[in-house]
């Protein structure tokens, strides 16, 4: 464990908590892409199947349980509890166009052709594009509530911090995992446009308005 990975995990935790609180407190999931949340639930389910087979540390196990529980809770809040506030007119990204290529790529490029490893690889590829429905929805509505942009900033920072973690681990432990690194870079790059808007607008107290 290193400071980059720890702050990355904490940023990830913060993002999930911000989103849950926003939906719970405002009793509304307006502006939130349910499709992205479904993709995240799939990502954690396919990645954390080893929860029952391998024990890494208490921290690792607790975080996996939290990510799994919170992702399903978020999907439940969006599609069941507050479904009246779900904006399905703007949440129209075709997630099958993200899931299928991730499946195919996981079957072609992986570290080992075993069920657990293929599922892990699929989850890494899917996570790198899982935010696209949300970013697409923000571009369609042309704006995002500031709480939603804080959520996106924390979520985008988490994998950016993981990139620093991978550099650190390569330098210090000569450990690297190209699949995670390439997917992590793609994932972080997808947020760049949003990061620019967040830093130039939201931090100045303005609303996140995309040029319509």
């Amino acid at each position: 464990m290193n400071i980059f990975r720890l702050t990355g995990d904490l940023a990830h935790l913060l993002a999930i908590i911000i989103l849950l609180l926003k939906i719970w407190k405002t009793r509304s999931c307006a502006g939130i892409s349910g499709k992205s949340q479904i993709l995240f639930a799939i990502v954690y389910t396919t990645r954390y199947l080893d929860l029952v087979t391998t024990y890494v540390s208490a921290y690792n196990t607790l975080m996996k349980i939290f990510f799994l529980g919170s992702s399903f809770a978020t999907v439940y809040l969006i599609y069941v509890k507050f479904k009246a506030t779900y904006d399905h007119n703007h949440d129209t990204f075709r997630i099958e166009f993200l899931i299928l290529p991730a499946v195919i790529l996981a079957l072609l490029i992986n570290h080992a052709f075993t069920p657990l490893e293929i599922l892990w690889t699929f989850s890494i590829y899917l996570e790198s594009v899982a935010i696209l429905p949300q970013l697409f929805m923000v571009s369609k509505t042309g704006e995002a509530e500031s709480i939603t942009s804080h959520y996106l900033f924390a979520l985008g920072s988490y994998r950016g911090l993981y990139i620093l973690n991978w550099i650190y681990r390569y330098a210090m432990e000569s450990h690297y995992d190209l699949i995670a690194i390439v997917a992590g870079i793609v994932q972080t790059v997808l947020y760049c446009d949003f990061f620019y808007l967040y830093i130039t607008k939201v931090l100045k107290g303005k609303k996140l308005q995309l040029p319509a």
């Binding site: 080893d50 890494v56 490893e117 892990w120 450990h175 690297y176 995992d177 190209l178």
Partner: peptide
């Protein structure tokens, strides 16, 4: 450097 098989990251 070796590539990680068992994944210790979240």
């Amino acid at each position: 450097p070796q590539v990680e098989e068992n994944h210790d990251e979240l």
